[in-house]
């Protein structure tokens, strides 16, 4: 740095390297670097409290608020559609599942086994991209990439299926399937982490 020297790309000796493989340390040029969302590079951030509130609101909505709404709303919707929609029955599990999923992404600090809650805080686990070389991309990170894709695919499929079924048949009980999909989407990195932990 002091002398203005640069690293050169492991694959293209004549190109400078702006980054290195975060896994094996090889210097890489822009063309040779891949980015992978790597659960082992997660860090923690603020915003835990907000997410906790949203999650709790969704759960409360599922358990209490939807029931507390005036029955007139549901009846009005049913009369518009010309048949009962069972919208409440679909929203309740969907809200519950996404609420629980949101809570599942939270982490806690300051719980050291006892009752000392000094320094207690709720944090969010954040995903980060890691620069990797081609061989680490194809090797070490393959499982993570596959899992990411699989969980995203399942989540999207379930969400779309649930909505499609509900709308097509005007039978909104199917929304619980979208709820499952939403929960998987929210928890996809945590699920990935769980699989990696279990498989290692």
């Amino acid at each position: 740095m002091a002398s203005g020297s640069t690293l050169s790309c492991r694959n293209h000796g004549d190109r400078g390297a702006g980054q290195v493989c975060g896994e094996c340390g090889d210097p890489l040029c822009g063309d040779c670097s891949n980015r992978v969302t790597d659960v082992t590079l997660d860090d923690y951030g603020a915003g835990g409290v907000r997410r906790l509130i949203v999650g709790l609101l969704l759960i409360a909505g599922s358990l209490v608020l939807l029931d507390a709404l005036p029955r007139g709303i549901w009846l009005a919707l049913a009369s518009v559609a010309g048949k009962p929609l069972y919208l409440r029955l679909g929203l309740k599990p969907a809200f519950l599942l996404t609420g629980i999923a949101l809570l599942g992404t939270l982490r806690f600090r300051g719980i050291s086994g006892g009752f000392d809650f000094s320094g207690f805080s709720i944090v969010t686990r954040r995903n980060n991209a890691r620069v990797v070389c081609q061989s680490c991309y194809d090797g070490d990170k393959r499982l993570q990439r596959t899992l990411s894709r699989v969980f995203k695919l399942i989540a999207v499929a379930l969400i779309v299926y649930g909505i499609y079924q509900s709308v097509a048949a005007l039978f909104f009980r199917w929304l619980w399937i979208s709820g499952v999909g939403g929960a998987i989407w929210i928890l996809r990195e945590d699920l990935k982490l769980a699989v990696i932990e279990l498989s290692s």
Binding site: D38, T40, L41, Y44, F108, I111, R130
Partner: peptide, 24 residues
């Protein structure tokens, strides 16, 4: 001293349950 812990990890009795290869 207070590494972030997953609620499930706390329930099952460990705070160091998560794989943290690049944390912090």
């Amino acid at each position: 001293e207070y590494p972030p812990a997953h609620p499930l990890g706390v329930l099952t009795g460990g705070v160091s349950g998560e794989s943290e290869s690049a944390y912090p």
